[in-house]
Simulated scan of single mutants.
Amino acid sequence: MQSLIILIDTAISIYIWILIASAILSWLVAFNIINTRNRFVYAVGDFLYRITEPALRPIRRILPNLGGIDLSPVVLILLLVFIRNLLWEYGV
């Protein structure tokens, strides 16, 4: 049973890092530091968008509009950390 918990914990940790990478890439694109006309940047951005958007979309519908500030990755990371802690508390 502990091997399954470690696998789920690792998957959650990887997804948290993917969320952080997606947020940083969106900032870099928004401030014109990197250009999405570059094929590699576009491919990475598209991959990160496709991986994170299904989880972020329901949270964005619930959160109020704060202008240009998107807090949905922060909320999702907090939820994932909470789930990971619950897994270790009740799974072992």
Score class of each variant (00 low, 15 high):
N38D: 04
N38S: 01
I16L: 03
I6C: 02
G67E: 07
T52W: 13
I24T: 10
R61N: 13
W27R: 11
I24F: 14
S26D: 10
S13V: 02
D9K: 02
M1D: 04
I62M: 08
T36D: 07
I62Y: 06
W88Q: 09
S3A: 11
L80T: 08
L56V: 14
M1S: 03
E89G: 00
R57P: 05
N65I: 06
V92S: 04
I20N: 02
N65V: 07
I24Q: 05
V44N: 00
D9R: 01
N35V: 00
Q2K: 07
F31G: 02
L63V: 08
Y49E: 05
Y15Q: 11
R39K: 13
Y49K: 12
L56D: 13
E53R: 03
A30P: 09
L79A: 15
V74S: 05
F40N: 02
V74A: 14
I51Y: 08
V74I: 15
L80P: 08
R39C: 00
I14F: 14
T36Q: 12
R39L: 12
V75Y: 03
L7A: 09
I8R: 00
F31L: 14
E53F: 01
P64T: 12
L63A: 04
Q2D: 14
V44I: 13
Y49C: 03
L76S: 10
E89M: 06
V81F: 09
S26Y: 03
R84Q: 15
A21E: 01
I5K: 01
F47K: 02
S3P: 05
R84D: 12
L80E: 08
I12P: 08
R57Q: 15
I69V: 15
L66V: 09
M1L: 03
V41L: 06
M1Y: 02
A11R: 00
V29W: 01
I20V: 10
L66T: 11
R60P: 00
L80G: 13
S26P: 01
S22C: 07
V41C: 02
L87Q: 04
I14L: 15
W88F: 08
L76R: 09
P64A: 13
I16Y: 06
D9G: 10
F40E: 00
L78R: 10
L7Y: 04
E89K: 07
I18R: 10
R39H: 11
V75R: 05
V29G: 01
I20A: 06
V29S: 04
A55L: 15
